[in-house]
Amino acid sequence: MEQFVYDFEEGNRDLKDLLGGKGANLAEMTNLGLPVPPGFTITTDACREFLRTGEVPARDEIERHLATLEDKMGRRLGDAADPLLVSVRSGAKFSMPGMMETVLN
Rank of each mutant, 00 (worst) to 15 (best):
L51W: 07
E2K: 15
D17E: 14
M73E: 11
G91T: 14
A24K: 00
K93L: 13
T53M: 03
D60Q: 14
G20V: 06
E49R: 12
P83N: 05
E9Y: 08
R76P: 09
E2D: 15
R89M: 02
K93F: 10
K16W: 10
G91W: 04
G11M: 03
D79G: 08
I42T: 02
L51Q: 14
F4L: 11
T30Y: 03
G39A: 05
E28H: 11
I62F: 00
D79W: 08
H65V: 00
L51M: 13
F40L: 05
P35M: 02
V56S: 10
F4V: 02
L66M: 08
A80L: 12
R89H: 00
D60T: 14
A24N: 07
T44W: 06
P35F: 04
V103D: 10
A80R: 13
M73W: 03
L19T: 00
D45I: 09
R48V: 12
N105P: 05
E2H: 12
V86L: 09
F94Q: 13
L34Y: 07
P57W: 07
A67R: 08
P83T: 04
K93T: 15
Y6I: 01
A81Q: 14
L77E: 06
K22R: 12
T30L: 01
A92Q: 09
N105G: 14
R75E: 11
G54S: 11
R64E: 12
R64P: 04
M73R: 10
D17A: 15
D7P: 04
T44K: 05
I62N: 00
T41W: 01
S90F: 02
R76A: 12
E55I: 13
E2M: 15
R13F: 12
A81K: 13
T30E: 00
E101D: 14
M1F: 09
R76L: 10
E9N: 11
N12L: 07
R59V: 14
L85G: 12
P97I: 06
K22S: 03
K22Y: 04
R89E: 00
P97W: 07
L34E: 08
N12E: 03
T41L: 01
E28Y: 06
P83K: 04
G33F: 04
P37C: 07
G78P: 09
G20D: 01
R48A: 15
E63A: 15
G39P: 00
T68Y: 10
S95R: 12
N25F: 05
G91E: 08
G78C: 10
N25W: 01
D82R: 12
R48C: 12
E49N: 06
R52F: 09
G74W: 07
L66C: 00
T44S: 10
E28I: 03
F50V: 05
E63S: 11
A80C: 06
G98Q: 09
T53L: 00
G33E: 05
K93R: 14
A67E: 11
D17P: 06
F40I: 05
V103L: 15
T30S: 01
G20N: 03
Q3G: 09
I62C: 01
S87C: 09
N105T: 13
L85Q: 15
L66V: 07
C47Q: 09
N105R: 13
F94R: 10
V88T: 08
A58Y: 00
K72P: 01
P97H: 07
N25I: 05
Y6S: 02
